[in-house]
Each structure stands twice: as C-alpha cells, then as structure tokens.
Design a protein around this nucleic acid. Structure first.
Lengths: 330, 330
DNA sequence: TTGTAGGCGTTATCAT
DNA sequence: ATGATAACGCCTACAA
C-alpha cells in the first residue's frame, strides 16, 4: 500500500480511505491512486485489514457434509448473496460428528469471522460455550424446533415434514406405511422426520409404521436395499416415506426390477426435491425444503448484522417451511 | 494471549512458542500454559498470526459450481486432508464465468493463502497475471491437456475420456453415435469430452457423431429433453454418450417412457460414476474420474509446499486418469 | 480533503 | 528454555 501511495503521490491513509470510501477522496487523487493500483497490480491485504479492523470479512459455514446436495445448494446460494457484501465463505464439514464440529468451530472462531453458520440446533456443550463467549453472530440453519437457537436460526420443522408425508398417504387412503432412512443415528434431522411421520400416523389411528435404517450414507443403493428388506418383512405395505430423494430413487429402481407398480402397489414419497425428482419414472412425489431460500435468508440475516442493523429477536428466527410437491409416485 | 501469559506466569513469547512447538518449552511451563488456556477459554487469533507470519493457513479453492457433485466430492476429500495440516478451505464458485473467477482470485490472494486451487487450465489474462505476480503456489485441477499449467496440476485428459467412450461403443459393434451435453459453451471440459468422442469416432472410420447441447445445467431433465431431440432427428441412432451421469439418468428414464430398450435399442454411457449409477435400471455404464483422488492429490501437493518440500516440476503434474466402469446400459 | 500516530495480536529474531 | 523487541500491513481516531 505504501508503494501505491508513493507512486500516486499521496499518503498511505489516503489510499486506505480511497479503497473503503472512494467518494471521500478528491477525484484527482482518486484517479492517481486507481492508476497506481493498476500499474503495481496491488492487492489489498485482508489479513492485515482484518487485524486492524478487529473483525474479518469471513463467514464460517459448517455443514455435516458438502457432498449432500441439500447443503451444497444452500452454501451456493449463501455464497452468492454474501459475495455482494464482500464476504468470503470459509467452509468446514463435520461428517455428522459433534466433536469434529467443535474443533471446526474453534478454528472458525480463530479467524474472528463476521458470522458463523452452523447446521442444526444440536451442538456439543463445548461448542455452545465457545460460541457464547465471543460476540460473534451465529446462525443455525436447516432446523427449527422446540430447542431455542443459540442466536439466530433459519430453517423448518422436520417433524412437521414427517407429519405432512403421513397425512398425504392417509389422504390417498393408504394405511400401512414404513419410513426408510439412512444414518438415522447420526442425522438427527432425518430422525426427526421419521419421528414426525410415525407420530402423525399414530395420531390418525393408523398402524404404527416401522422405521428402517441403513447404516451408510443416503444413496440410491441404500434405497434399493431398504426396499428389499421392506418387501421381505412387511407383506401388506402400501406406502413408504424416504428420508431423502436419493433413497426414493433407489426404491423406484428396485420396484421396477421387482415389477412393483408405483404408486398402485406401493406409494413412494421422498424428501429434498432434487434435480432428478421431476424426471424420474414415475416422477417422484416429494417434499421441498427450499435449500436455496435458507441460504438466502441466512445471508440476509448476516448482511443485517454486518451493517449494524441486527433485526429484533423475533425476526432472528425465520421459518422457511416446507412444500409438498405432488407428482405421480404417491 | 497476554492474559494467558500472565495467569501462567510466563511471557507471551513462551505462550506463542508453546502453541507452535509444545516440545520446545519446559514441561512445567507447558502445564501452566495449558491450564491457563483452558481456564480462560483462549482461542488464538489466526488473523494476527497470519499477519505476523506473513502467510495464512488458508487454502482458497475456486470451483465452477459447488452444486456439481464432482466438485463437491473433490472439495470434501481435499478438506479432510488439508485439515490435518491445520489448513482451512475458503470456497468460491465462479458459475463458469472467467471474469467472476478473476474477481474471486483477487479476493483469494488478498488473504495471502498458503495455496490457491483453481478448476481447469483456462483462465483470463488478468487471472494469470495476478497469479504470476505473487509467489503463491497454485494448483489447477480436473483437467490435463496440451496447455501447460500455471504452476501445478492434478487431473486427467477429457478428450481421452471422450475417446474411451467412442472406442467402447465401437467394440460393442455400434456405429451410429451421438453426444449429449449441457452448457457446452461454458463447460470447456465437457466440450473437450465431446470433442474427443467425435474425433475418436472419426479416427475409427465411423460416421461423425452429432453433438447435442442443452443450454441449462446438466440435469436429468436436460437428459430427457435431449433424448427427445435425438429420437426425433436421428432415426438410426445406436448409442449415446452423455457428458454427465445426471444426463444419462434422464436418458434412461425417457427411454423407459418411450419403450426404448437399453442397451438393445440404444446403448448409453455416462460420466462421473455418481452414487446412483450402479443402482439405476439398467445400471449405468460410465466413466469414473475419481474426484476424491483428485482432491487427495491436490492436498498432497499443497502439503509438500507448506512443508517446504515442493516436489520437482515433473512431479507437480499428476495424471489421475479415468476408469471405464462397464455395467449394463451399454 | 489529506496526513500523522498509535495500535490490532501474533511471530521471529535475537539476547539472556 | 525463556523473554524483550521489532516488525507484519492496515485502520481509526485525530490533527492539520
């Protein structure tokens, strides 16, 4: 920066000022500085800037898995919005482990981020303490429920999603359901969907739906295997709710192989409304969580915090809801 | 840090030293310091550390789209490896725009990253200048070809992938091919696969395969539409190569709807070996690029740079190759 | 509008 | 093994 100042014939602080508020500097000086920057290929050092300003323009985002299309969607949307404020996304993935998450939070905090974004409402004790100590704004996303958020939250109720699926099947006159999930022990939001599904079926006076769990990540392969298990053990089954569209996709394929007509013999509902769900055969009935909306809302909240216009507590919890997308599979 | 030093009864330098090389400090002092850190909930400020050390422990990764499962896979694998070295990933996505990429590179450089990871070998003039100026290690990934990399590279030849697909079809006795792609104007690697496919068909003395392009991102929906176009215009068609497994998935579904037998009436080959490809009906023949391997190799290169043991130029270009995964679709 | 001075929380270099 | 000291590159008063 000193080089720029020297070649522009001004002082370093003028350059600094120009960089942050170009209109606060005289047009003539501005020209000189712009030229010097161009000529020298100067790139401001944000590390130094962050240190001096006691707060960097970084937003730390921690998701369970970036491979998961849901979170990829959200992160992408969020990044696009955040970039407008000159905010950079630092990414971490916890692989659904609370202890890993805590370590990531610790590292994140070390960067004095403008905000920190977490997935879900459940975190380790240590994580809560770390977050409570600093004045860093924290947004929890992709989940809303009984539990009060640490600070702000954007998401929806997963038990409500499960209930929607159960009600939908009931409306179609189905009575014997099952829930197909993967890694339910790790993925608490999927578990909440299962719970909501079962609870709603019970409330409607229907037979209690069994919950089948696949120990590996949610893939089409898992779905195909789960359908095999379900067929072997539950003869009168009429409908299955899947914790993820990929599982539903596997179910669809396995049904084709076994000659099970969907939805006549077996109704199928997914979750996620992934890109292939409208194109499958039959098209997949699913529940859309609006991952991109979540990303945008999180960004909006952070934008407000950064600009010192933090919304009132009530507006810091935003419910993005969910949407039943009825197609042909159930 | 001064607080920690005070409560531990040592000087700040000793604390700093302990944090970086615990074995260089006496066990007694180490104990005191550890306790003080624990008691105060001290989190070191990496921004200040980065400034003082003139180089942060951040790796900037710029991909075209994080929604794309290929890159998500690579980023996830890379992050896992990098985390072991205490390196944080800063993510950016260019949406396949060179000018956006240049802006992202500028921001990335402003963080004085330990390394910067780019996708592909093609970048704007400005981007090259920025990168050439600084001494930041740069790794280009997911592509290898005629073009020399800026610094290091990990990837494979996309024209070779296209050629593999064409040879495979030829071996099956097919003669009339087509290539189905999406956003070929933006996605140069997909375009290279198309090119390799066409060139190899020509080399084998087969009719020149038409290349069909879908203007929107590669999805199953795009695949279904492309199959429709292909059926309408190319009556004698025997095989289609898709630029992405999602497109192939859409083709598979559309074939089911139209009663086209795969592979008897039409052979289909994809690219990516995504999670659903082994489970589809029929299972998808595809080409595996090993996105996770790319991520790990990139991390290995960066690890070496960070440790001052930069491999010789020859070892800085690693070809991860590609693998034909033969299944039932073609 | 522009320049000056002090400090942000570390690390690195040198003594001790 | 430990501690004093000087950067690191910028920002934020404040003064001119």
């Amino acid at each position: 920066m000193m080089d720029v100042a020297r070649t522009a014939g001004v002082s370093p602080s003028t350059v600094s000022l120009y960089l942050r508020r170009p209109e606060a500097v005289s047009p003539a000086a501005g020209q000189e500085i712009a030229q010097a920057i161009e000529a020298l290929g100067y790139v401001p050092n944000l590390v130094a800037g962050g240190l001096a300003a006691a707060g960097s323009r970084v937003v730390s985002v921690i998701v369970p898995s970036i491979r998961n299309a849901f979170f990829a969607e959200t992160v992408a949307a969020m990044q696009t919005e955040l970039a407008r404020d000159g905010l950079q996304v630092m990414l971490g993935h916890s692989e659904y482990s609370d202890t890993d998450e805590e370590a990531l939070i610790r590292t994140a905090l070390a960067w004095a981020p403008a905000a920190i974004v977490l997935t879900g409402l459940e975190h380790s004790k240590g994580a809560r303490k770390l977050l409570a100590a600093g004045g860093t704004p924290v947004v929890e996303m992709w989940e809303l429920g009984e539990q009060a958020p640490i600070d702000m939250a954007v998401g929806f109720s997963h038990t409500a999603v499960g209930a929607t699926a159960a009600r939908h099947f009931a409306q179609q006159g189905k009575r014997h359901f099952a829930f197909l999930g993967a890694r339910l022990a790790q993925d608490r939001r999927a578990a909440a969907r299962a719970e909501g599904f079962v609870a709603e079926a019970r409330r409607l006076g229907l037979p209690e739906p069994p919950v089948l769990n696949h120990p590996a990540p949610a893939t089409a392969e898992a779905g195909a295997q789960l359908l095999g298990r379900v067929q072997a053990s539950l003869p009168g089954l009429e409908a299955v709710a899947c914790s993820n569209d990929l599982i539903a996709l596997g179910v669809l394929f396995e049904c084709q192989r076994r000659g099970i007509a969907v939805p006549a013999d077996l109704a199928v509902i997914g979750f996620g409304d992934l890109s292939f769900s409208s194109t499958s055969n039959p098209p997949l009935t699913t529940i859309r969580p609006s991952g991109d909306l979540i990303g945008r809302e999180v960004a909006r909240l952070i934008h407000a915090c950064v600009h010192g216009t933090r919304p009132p507590p009530g507006a810091c919890i935003v419910d993005t809801g969910h949407l039943l997308v009825e197609r042909k599979s159930g």
